[in-house]
Amino acid sequence: MENFLNVLTELSGGFVTSVLLFFFTLLLSLPLGLIISFCTMSKFKPLSALSKIVVWVLRGTPLMLQVFAIFYLPGLLNLFVWPQMNTGWEWFDTTFSTRFIAALAAFAINYAAYFSEIFRGGIQSISQGQYEAGQVLGMTKSEIFFKIILLQVVKRIIPPMSNEIITLIKDTSLANTIVVCELIFEAKEFMLEGLIWPLFAAGAFYLIFVGVLTVLFNKAEKKLDYFKA
């Protein structure tokens, strides 16, 4: 029993790291994805070509490799070394370690690339009539986008976005390539002691988290039901 509680405590610690990585990745990759989607749709050819190449590279190579590259390459090429947090607050310093920040950077950029394509699909699916209606009402371009287009886009992209977001929480385990002590890392530590079941217990953590996410997405979809586009 004591053993069981000990395992759960360790796993919870790892889960907190996974969830933090998840939330911060979303926080950064959603706006970044929107910016990339604008670049891809830009009428200025060099910019859209460049951002298409960026998206191709980010979607075309394994995330694990990107995490590895972002963490090790700067040092290997003598550019810079990821700095260590040093606030003196131990929990903060260990949780937001150099490794965590590097993993977060890799995740944010990678997911922004996927999100940008979803955004682009959503934005381009809104009919021209919506823009024209805005113009008739004398709205500026940015007013049209934020007041008319964006919410309709949000409703349309919820199903593909929920797919990506659910994948994200499970992808956080890739951060253990560079020894970010997330859920799977902690579970695997027990295998050194000969315990295998913590790995399956870790699975339950993901399952519950995804369950909560699914309920939230369903609610969000219902709330946005008034757009009968």
């Binding site: 670049c39 830009s42 910019l47 951002s51 960026v54 700067p74 090429l77 550019l79 810079f80 070394v81």
Partner: peptide, 21 residues
């Protein structure tokens, strides 16, 4: 647009001052 393109290239190529260790 041009500024953004330059910014993207700059971040990608990591043209940060290199130092030897």
């Amino acid at each position: 647009s041009l500024l953004m393109a330059i910014l993207m290239i700059a971040t990608l190529s990591l043209t940060l001052t290199s130092c030897s260790y």
